[in-house]
Nucleic acid binder design. Structure first.
Length: 832
RNA sequence: GCCCGAGUGGCGGAAUGGCAGACGCACCGCACUCAAAAUGCGGCGCCGCAAGGCGUGUGGGUUCGAGUCCCACCUCGGGCACCA
């Protein structure tokens, strides 16, 4: 032991990541190498990781996501681009408030302490960020502009208030956007969501539904298909028709028109009843006096259901007859009007024509209440009235007057023509997307910059009076959830004067959903100190859109949809020339442990700090990258950070072995090794462009192995090709393992930083081989391998292949039917 | 139910329609060592003593040639879902 140890010390050849981190961290801090020049001397590129929420220290998930973004950032820098790679914090939000309540503190204390912790960890983790642009959404200097943008939205009618049934989380005591309700439960805490009718603020995102859908064409191929699919799904465009039905007058009330939305106007003749949403106002307006009590009892029954129960498709259909009839505009038939909870007030017009033969829900309802079923599209299947299964496919129209005999699509078009001509209907497009509910009854968020005045109404706070800052004196228990905003309790804050008339008025006490803050932060990064607006439009035009965005798929329809919406509105305000914020998106996978997401309740969490202490920053980063393709999950139980550390030590030792002087002419070096080096650099660039980071690591390992061999049993450590190879290893490794790469670079006689070394130039002549291995197949099976000149002719290769002994054996003396020659790599012979 | 994505050794994973399993983990062996660790070198899909045969979820198809393309199906993962 002592012998070996002293030898290690004597040669200084032991890899100690602790030393490398201690040496290079301060040097980089001093250098400040990651601030873009922004002087137009190089093409600009913007790479961004979804900014973190400051909940405690960084965890394994951050380590993976930020490793990915940093590879792109560092690669682009090596290619010579002027790279913008900023970092900031999404620092408003509930956990800070809950911590403040528990500790009798102000949310800012917990928030900013955590930010400092995370910032220090990011620095240790060697993220190549431009620290001079750091921002926090909870800084008044930031949320001033969130408020400014809200005011612009308000001016354009894109921010408005309405009374409406909303999603309510009973635990967090706040409303939720549709996007924050997952399977009927609160996205954050999992509590089943209830409905509550409240006056709330909304963004009119539905006005942008078409553009949000259409502009996805630009993202195709650059965003993961699943994210585009999720957004498409969420927006839920469906084409159909609005058809007006006259509801007959009764003794008490006159006749009135009720419009339905249908995607199947071809089935109008098959409508046998009419249904309105039980919880829509319309139900109460239509019901006859003698049936009102029945309706109200039913409505109570519906309200008692949780969202999860109500949405269940297993549940038997329920409903009540309203005592009135609607007239089918096509055939004049009288249809009984029902109220039922399977029709949603939120979707379409809240009323439908029921066609039980061709819609399963209507059929279930018809069977429950003994309503007639009439088939009008013959699909060749059994009559739904008999089978109990609605038919929805292609077919021929029957029992449908002038539509009879037509196919489904023709009939849809014809039916729309008929109702349009009669003025009782029109072609229409309906969306599933709802407006974005943005107000929250919580404290730690951006205050809504509106003053309510008895005389002037809803008055926006003028731009020159922004920001409306949060009161400092609310803390601890005063922030506890109570169903209304804690801000209401801050009387000196709430009571103000009307900006319009100067009279006494009250501030709006709700705060904004934190997704509002994060819907534009990528714009703030281009000019974080700018004071004339949310961002400098010229800087935005220079840097945006983001060239590579990196983050988790959990934001597919939240942050990513909202950011696209904001970007379009800001574009329409004339502030930016582009209307999509993120040109390319990479969804990194999750870090699992033992096949499951790490969680406190499972007790399977892995502490990032401990991993960094044990294996070093570089080994952890390299493991994240090498374990799997970026978009796949990494199971920490299956990977080997110690294996990564071993490889890094092996690569690092190469640098100590190099004996040629810096600047030695590689042209004089060993050609075989040079070929490997240049092939590796060329392949690595291609793989990096395709985000196949794990394969880049594998190729680098091959280069390291080849270099080791060249030193130990080849041309030797003094060969300039060895230096060339090791320098290439250092530059490639600088993307994944910056400390190790920097130290190798120094050992090779270069000053810091390897981050600016530049991507190695590939000599194309070294990518061409003199001889290649030609594969000879008989009927597609490999029978021989031949070393042949790379420029061999087809005829020569054919002859060589046919002369091969194993090939002759496989041919068993039969004649040749086909011989395919792909010189110089392959011959395939098919015998008679 | 609808919409996406994925099925390759013991494991993570490679593979512009052309040598399946690169690279690594684990495992086995060898060298160095009194020994171990570290390091270096080698082996490692399955069946078979071997020759050889079989192999990329299943079944078909296209092709001189299919992990890769097409059709049908199975399984797993994810999203949406009483959305008219």
């Amino acid at each position: 032991m002592s012998t070996q140890h002293s030898e290690t010390e004597a040669t200084g050849s032991s890899y100690r990541f602790q030393d490398l981190e201690a040496t290079w961290g301060p040097v980089w801090e001093e250098l400040g190498v990651f601030t873009p020049k922004d002087d137009g001397t190089a093409e600009r590129r913007y790479v961004l990781d979804m900014f973190p929420y400051p909940s405690g220290d960084l965890h394994m998930g951050h380590a993976e996501a930020f490793a990915m973004g940093d590879v792109v950032s560092r690669y682009w820098r090596q290619l010579g681009y002027d790279v913008l790679h900023p970092i900031g914090w999404d620092s408003f939000g509930l956990p800070a408030e809950n911590a403040a309540i528990k500790r009798n503190a102000h949310p800012s204390e917990w928030t900013y302490a955590n930010i400092e912790t995370q910032a220090a960890s990011f620095k240790r983790y060697a993220i190549s960020a431009d620290w001079s642009r750091r921002l926090h959404t909870s800084d008044p200097g930031y949320y001033r502009w969130t408020q400014w943008l809200f005011t612009r939205f308000h001016e354009k009618g894109l921010a408005y208030r309405k009374d409406h049934p909303v999603n309510w989380c009973p635990k967090d005591q706040t409303v939720l956007a549709n996007e924050q309700v997952v399977a009927g439960a609160c996205e954050r805490c999992g509590t089943p969501v209830t409905k509550k009718s409240l006056n709330q603020w909304y963004f009119r995102i539905t006005e942008y539904a078409d553009r949000l859908l259409d502009d996805m064409d630009q993202l195709k191929g650059h965003w993961p298909e699943r994210v585009l699919a999720m957004q498409r799904n969420w927006i839920g465009r469906s084409e159909g028709a609005h058809v007006d039905f006259a509801v007959e007058a009764t003794d008490e009330s006159p006749s009135r028109a009720v419009t339905v939305f249908t995607t199947r106007p071809d089935t109008l003749y098959g409508a046998t009843f009419f249904v309105v949403a039980a919880d829509a106002d319309l139900a109460g307006e239509l019901v006859t006096a003698d049936r009102r009590a029945g309706l109200e009892a039913y409505q109570e029954q519906v309200k008692a259901l949780s969202e999860i129960e109500r949405q269940s498709t297993e549940r038997e259909k329920t409903g009540v007859f309203l005592g009135r009839y609607a007239i089918n505009p096509l055939n004049g038939e009288r249809l009984p009007v029902w109220a039922a909870d399977y029709v949603l007030a939120e979707y379409g017009t809240g009323a439908i024509m029921a066609v039980p033969a061709h819609d399963q829900r209507d059929l279930d309802f018809a069977k429950t209440f003994g309503l007639p079923v009439r088939m009008v599209v013959d699909t060749g299947e059994e009559d739904p009235a008999v089978s109990g299964t609605a038919t929805v496919g292609e077919g021929t129209l029957v029992n449908s007057g002038e539509l009879s005999g037509l196919g489904k699509d023709e009939a849809i078009a014809r039916a729309i023509e008929i109702v349009e001509a009669a003025g009782t209907g029109r072609h229409t497009v309906n969306f599933r997307l709802r407006d974005w509910l943005l107000s929250r009854q919580r404290f730690w968020g951006t205050p809504i910059p509106i003053v309510h005045c008895a005389d002037c109404g809803e008055v926006p706070v003028p731009d020159d009076q922004l920001p409306v800052t949060l009161p400092e004196n609310l803390r601890g228990e005063a922030l506890a959830p109570q169903g209304t905003s804690p801000l209401a309790a801050a009387e000196d804050w709430v009571n103000t004067t009307c900006p319009s008339c100067g009279g006494a008025a009250k501030r709006d006490t709700d705060t904004m959903d934190t997704f509002v803050d994060s819907s534009w932060y990528f714009l703030r990064f281009v000019s974080p100190e700018y004071t004339e607006g949310p961002f400098d439009p010229a800087a935005a035009a220079r840097w945006m859109p983001v060239g590579q965005y990196v983050g988790g798929v959990e934001h597919a329809i939240l942050h990513l949809l909202y950011s696209r919406f904001f970007t379009k509105v800001i574009h329409d305000l004339g502030l930016i020339p582009f209307s999509e914020p993120f040109s390319a998106l990479l969804n990194q996978g999750q870090v699992l442990n033992g096949g499951k997401a790490m969680s406190k309740s499972l007790g399977n969490g892995v502490d990032l700090g401990e991993q960094l202490d044990k294996y070093g920053v570089d080994a952890v980063r390299l493991t994240m990258i090498f374990a799997s393709p970026p978009e796949d999950d990494v199971d920490w139980a299956d990977v080997s950070p110690s294996g990564s550390a071993k490889f890094l030590a092996r690569a690092w030792r190469l640098a100590g072995d190099v004996t040629s002087a810096p600047g030695a002419d590689p042209a004089a070096g060993d050609v075989a090794l040079r070929r490997v080096t240049h092939r590796t650099v060329a392949d690595a660039a291609e793989l990096l462009d395709a985000s196949k980071f794990n394969v880049v690591v594998a190729k680098t390992m091959e280069l390291v192995n080849a270099t080791r061999k060249a030193i130990d049993s080849g041309p030797g450590a003094g060969d300039p090709a060895v230096r060339e190879a090791v320098e290439a290893v250092a530059v490639i490794l600088s993307l994944f393992a910056p400390y190790t790469a920097e130290d190798m670079w120094a050992q090779l006689g270069h000053g810091p930083s390897v981050a600016n070394a530049g991507w190695p130039t590939v000599d194309p002549s070294l990518l061409v081989q003199d001889t290649v291995v030609a594969v000879v197949q008989v009927r597609g099976k490999v029978r021989d391998r031949l070393d042949v000149p790379a420029d061999i002719t087809e005829d020569a290769l054919r002859e060589l292949a046919l002369a091969s002994e194993p090939v002759q054996r496989a041919l068993e003396g039969r004649g040749l039917r086909t011989v395919i020659v792909r010189a110089p790599k392959l011959v395939n012979i098919v015998p008679e």
